[in-house]
Amino acid sequence: MTFRRTVLITGASSGLGAEMARQLAALGHDLALCARRTERLEELRAEILGRHDVRVAIAPLDVTDDDAVFAAFRAFRDELGSLDRVVVNAGLGKGAPLGTGRFDANRQTAMTNFVAALAQTEAAMEAFRAQGSGHLVMVSSMSAMRGLPKTLTTYAATKAGVAHLAEGLRTELHGTTLGRSVKVTVLYPGYIASEMNDQVAQGTPLMASTEKGVRAMVAAIEKEVDDACVPALPWAPLSVVMRHAPLPVLKRLI
């Protein structure tokens, strides 16, 4: 049985965020959707409202604007009455090998993927502490399993960082009164087709379609698991290899 919840999704204008919105709406959840591209949010809202009897609130948001993050989350809570679940999804995939003159790209990725995720987590927990309940969902990445080279170095580090941020929060809440009603989930998506990874060969056997990959994400979210590699196959067993393979072996794999 699915209980109707109000779900806030950042980075909801395309890719995984937009598909999560579609699938969560199909389960009967109300939505608070934010992203920089408001015209896409308008289109997504019209699509969802045309198919499902749910509420959909939208707002423009650049997650690197800290004050705007807090303002948007508070406004959504005021409009919809509560924020039962927050999916920290907005992210950036650009990067360059360290020391090659593209600090600007690496810094932008770090600020968007980690510092902005921190702001979103703070804003979510502000609401959850006030309500006494909530569910934080942190979208990390399989790249968080191990430090990765070249263009992925900074990206992988940020995704490891946000996973630890969420896990640290779960540790803090464990055994407390609030911890019984506030849940924390970390998702580690593998290759799922989206705008962010459109440079990856779409024909790779490891690439899941957006719909299939997000279905695995939504299933884990609905179960409120602590963490999940999604889709489970092949990524759950591959996570063990990524964590423990000797460096020469890892380099050949990646």
Score class of each variant (00 low, 15 high):
residue 178 L to V: 01
residue 168 G to E: 02
residue 156 A to Q: 06
residue 91 G to C: 01
residue 174 H to Q: 11
residue 27 L to Q: 14
residue 251 K to G: 06
residue 234 P to E: 03
residue 133 S to D: 09
residue 205 P to E: 00
residue 34 C to A: 13
residue 189 P to C: 04
residue 183 K to F: 12
residue 105 A to Y: 02
residue 184 V to I: 15
residue 153 T to K: 00
residue 237 P to K: 02
residue 39 E to L: 04
residue 107 R to H: 08
residue 127 A to H: 00
residue 87 V to W: 05
residue 81 G to C: 01
residue 227 D to K: 14
residue 84 D to L: 05
residue 217 M to E: 10
residue 73 F to W: 07
residue 79 E to C: 04
residue 81 G to K: 05
residue 106 N to P: 11
residue 26 A to S: 14
residue 155 Y to H: 12
residue 125 M to T: 11
residue 198 D to C: 11
residue 209 S to D: 10
residue 217 M to Y: 07
residue 161 G to W: 05
residue 99 G to S: 01
residue 144 A to R: 10
residue 21 A to M: 06
residue 42 E to A: 13
residue 111 M to S: 06
residue 240 V to Q: 08
residue 31 L to P: 12
residue 197 N to Q: 05
residue 85 R to L: 15
residue 35 A to M: 09
residue 94 K to P: 00
residue 46 A to V: 06
residue 108 Q to L: 15
residue 102 R to V: 07
residue 132 G to M: 02
residue 201 A to V: 00
residue 141 S to F: 10
residue 175 G to I: 12
residue 230 V to F: 06
residue 168 G to I: 06
residue 186 V to S: 03
residue 83 L to Q: 02
residue 213 G to A: 08
residue 97 P to N: 05
residue 198 D to S: 15
residue 174 H to K: 15
residue 79 E to L: 14
residue 218 V to E: 09
residue 127 A to V: 15
residue 62 D to G: 01
residue 160 A to G: 13
residue 21 A to W: 05
residue 144 A to Y: 03
residue 100 T to K: 11
residue 204 T to I: 14
residue 251 K to M: 14
residue 21 A to L: 12
residue 192 I to K: 06
residue 242 M to Y: 09
residue 147 G to I: 13
residue 31 L to W: 10
residue 157 A to N: 04
residue 113 N to A: 11
residue 106 N to C: 06
residue 147 G to M: 11
residue 14 S to V: 08
residue 208 A to S: 15
residue 79 E to D: 13
residue 190 G to M: 12
residue 241 V to D: 00
residue 253 L to I: 15
residue 220 A to N: 01
residue 254 I to Q: 08
residue 190 G to R: 12
residue 48 I to L: 15
residue 164 H to K: 14
residue 157 A to L: 12
residue 236 A to D: 00
residue 120 Q to D: 14
residue 233 L to Y: 04
residue 74 R to P: 05
residue 249 V to A: 14
residue 217 M to K: 03
residue 212 K to R: 13
residue 23 Q to I: 09
residue 196 M to G: 01
residue 118 L to V: 13
residue 62 D to R: 09
residue 28 G to W: 08
residue 12 A to W: 04
residue 137 V to G: 03
residue 249 V to G: 01
residue 17 G to V: 11
residue 16 L to F: 13
residue 47 E to R: 06
residue 128 F to H: 10
residue 132 G to R: 05
residue 14 S to A: 14
residue 210 T to K: 07
residue 24 L to T: 09
residue 108 Q to V: 12
residue 93 G to A: 13
residue 89 N to M: 11
residue 246 P to M: 12
residue 63 V to P: 13
residue 51 R to N: 06
residue 35 A to H: 09
residue 195 E to R: 02
residue 84 D to G: 14
residue 57 A to C: 04
residue 16 L to C: 03
residue 130 A to Y: 00
residue 193 A to C: 00
residue 45 R to V: 08
residue 130 A to H: 04
residue 95 G to Q: 03
residue 147 G to L: 12
residue 128 F to D: 05
residue 50 G to L: 07
residue 46 A to G: 06
residue 58 I to Y: 11
residue 27 L to T: 00
residue 5 R to T: 05
residue 173 L to D: 09
residue 239 S to P: 08
residue 205 P to G: 03
residue 117 A to N: 02
residue 18 A to M: 07
residue 216 A to W: 07
residue 194 S to R: 11
